[in-house]
């Protein structure tokens, strides 16, 4: 009972990871070197994946690491080769100061909106226990949902990926 108000281990890990994610995001847009940005993006993605694990979304976390860290970050690192002056390549345009105003307002309003909402009282049932049954084995459930309820969306997502693939090829095809 004494320790009831103390944060649990999950909470501590969450706060650390959250802090790490925010710092990583800020660092992406503030370092001068684009290559460093790419590496920081990969790290941030890993920390987001850890957040997914903490939020009981194991499968999404794994996907996150596979897609973002494994594929996207590598692609971006590859694209960095196009940059000429890598150490000073991450400069900003003339909107840098002006954009702070709407960004701040946006963030404040979102924070107000989230804070003003009473999230707990909207639901009366205790969802901790039954949730676990599904969450624990969510990979199989996700697979079943993908080929049942979300079948159309799943196919469309595949189509979009195919279109992106063909589009990228068409864009980079050698002329003639």
């Amino acid at each position: 009972m004494v320790f009831a108000d103390l944060p649990t281990l999950v909470d501590i890990v969450f706060w650390i990871i959250a802090l790490f994610t925010v710092c990583g995001s800020v660092a992406i847009i503030s370092v001068n070197n684009v290559f460093k940005s790419a590496v920081l993006l990969a790290l941030t993605m890993v920390s987001v994946a850890i957040l997914y694990f903490l939020l009981s979304a194991d499968f999404i976390g794994v996907i996150q690491i596979l897609v973002y860290v494994g594929a996207v970050s590598v692609l971006i690192a590859f694209a960095v080769m196009l940059v000429k002056d890598v150490p000073r390549s991450n400069s900003a345009n003339n909107l840098i100061n002006l954009s702070i105003i709407p960004s701040t307002i946006f963030l404040v309003i979102i924070a107000f909106a989230i804070g003003a909402e009473n999230w707990i009282t909207k639901t009366t049932i205790n969802y901790e226990e039954p949730l676990n049954e599904i969450v624990v084995s969510n990979v199989s459930w996700i697979g079943e949902l993908l080929i049942r309820e979300y079948f159309i969306s799943f196919q469309i997502a595949g189509l979009i990926l195919l279109a992106a693939l063909i589009g990228a090829l068409a864009l980079l095809r050698r002329e003639g």
Binding site: L98, S99, I105, F106, I109, F112, A113, A116, E117, N118
Partner: peptide
Amino acid sequence: FVFFMALTVLMIVFFISNLNTGDSW
């Protein structure tokens, strides 16, 4: 940027106009 600016203005208007009703978002 203009788009974003307009979005924030709309949000402010929405937020202020519903401040008195006590409804959540």
